[in-house]
Simulated assay, not measured.
Amino acid sequence: MAKTWMITGVSSGFGREMTEQLLSAGDRVIGTVRSTAKVADLIKKYPDTFDCVILDVTDAAKVTETVNEAAAKHGRIDVYVSNAGYGLFGAAEELSLEEIDRILNTNLRGSIAFIRAAIPHLRKQGGGRIIQISSYGGQVAYPGNSLYHATKFGIEGFCESVAQEVAPFGIDVTIVEPGGARTEFRYGSARVAKLMPEYDGSATHAFLKMLDPKNGLAPGDPAKMAARIIESADTEKPLLHMVLGSQALKATIATLQKRLAEYETETELAASTDIVE
């Protein structure tokens, strides 16, 4: 049965790939963009099932207004996909306050605003899905990515809490944690701070090699990843965390095992601060 999806940031990356696959399968997509230039072909090809909406997710009030208008226009929206976002690279001290505010407003506050706006409609219609496109960088941190990780760790904590809040209403939440993929995230939309020579040659600037296609492309296939995300909307009991990419899963498991091992050494330390009656 055809579904109606609302997806933010469909001009490139996973948003674009998902939209193409969904429309070709006969689903309806309400897709948000900041400019229609990159989706003009989809607007022309799918005039009845692709509703392209201009939206800057950093405007929280506009996000709410756009979601409400979409729900009023299309009725039931089965799946809300919070996808809009980008990467920002550079050491913490290399980043400007403007760069910090922008990525927080886009990746974190924008996602929060979108999900908050979707919840009342999903609750009133008796259920549905929320899919948050995060990254395995929401669990694993690397130098030179501090603010990007801050947004992804942050949105994952938000979604884990929201998943528990909305479960009684038949609303499921999935946090998608892709590894490196051959999308514009690395090879087009990524932003780099004004770099300082003090970090040259260190692990903090290792991302420069990653961002250069000449050094090899990311292993993830965007089409396959998009297909797995779409398929998750049909599962009866969807995963809360869905890792895409074998390298990403390996790194995530290793990080969590190391974190758990460290916590397990702290039994006496933790107990030493308890009040003993």
Rank of each mutant, 00 (worst) to 15 (best):
S202D: 07
G220T: 00
T204M: 12
M6H: 08
T151L: 04
E17W: 09
A141F: 03
L122I: 06
Y80Q: 07
L147E: 12
G13K: 01
T252E: 05
R116C: 10
S135V: 04
V29S: 06
K124N: 13
T36F: 14
P197T: 15
L217T: 09
F185R: 07
A71F: 08
Q247T: 11
I119T: 14
S12G: 00
E160C: 05
M242T: 08
A167E: 13
P222D: 02
T265H: 07
G245E: 01
V29W: 11
G13E: 04
T49A: 03
G126Q: 10
H121K: 12
I230E: 01
H121R: 07
E156R: 13
G157P: 10
R28E: 10
A71I: 09
S11I: 05
G144Y: 09
D221L: 05
N68W: 05
D59V: 05
K73A: 13
V79F: 04
P168Q: 08
H74G: 00
K73Y: 02
F153N: 04
A226T: 06
S189K: 14
L88N: 04
N68R: 09
T174W: 03
A193Y: 10
V67I: 14
R182M: 10
L195T: 15
Y148P: 04
G75C: 07
T8M: 04
G15Q: 01
T58C: 10
I54E: 14
E93M: 09
N107R: 02
Q21T: 02
A190W: 10
R34L: 00
G31L: 10
K214R: 14
G85I: 01
N145E: 14
M225R: 02
S24H: 14
L269M: 12
H149Y: 10
D234C: 05
E20P: 00
N83F: 01
G126C: 00
V173G: 00
F114D: 06
D212C: 04
P222E: 02
N215V: 10
Q21V: 05
E65N: 09
A193Q: 04
V243I: 15
T235R: 15
G90T: 02
V63C: 09
L195F: 05
G188C: 08
D27H: 15
G75L: 00
L108T: 02
E262P: 00
V33S: 06
P238G: 04
R129P: 07
G110S: 03
M242Y: 06
A2I: 06
K237Y: 11
A70N: 07
L108V: 02
A233W: 11
G110K: 08
A226P: 02
G128I: 02
Y263V: 03
A163L: 09
G144V: 05
Q139L: 15
E184W: 03
Q257D: 15
L122D: 10
G179D: 01
E268F: 10
A72I: 03
E20L: 13
T106S: 05
G13R: 01
P197G: 03
G216W: 01
P168T: 01
D27W: 08
C159S: 14
Q257V: 08
G170Q: 06
F207G: 04
I133V: 12
V243H: 06
L95V: 11
S96R: 12
K45Y: 02
E262N: 12
N145R: 15
K44N: 13
V176D: 03
D56H: 07
A181D: 06
A218I: 05
E198T: 13
D200G: 05
L97C: 11
M196E: 15
E99C: 11
E262F: 14
I171G: 07
E65S: 12
L55I: 02
A60G: 11
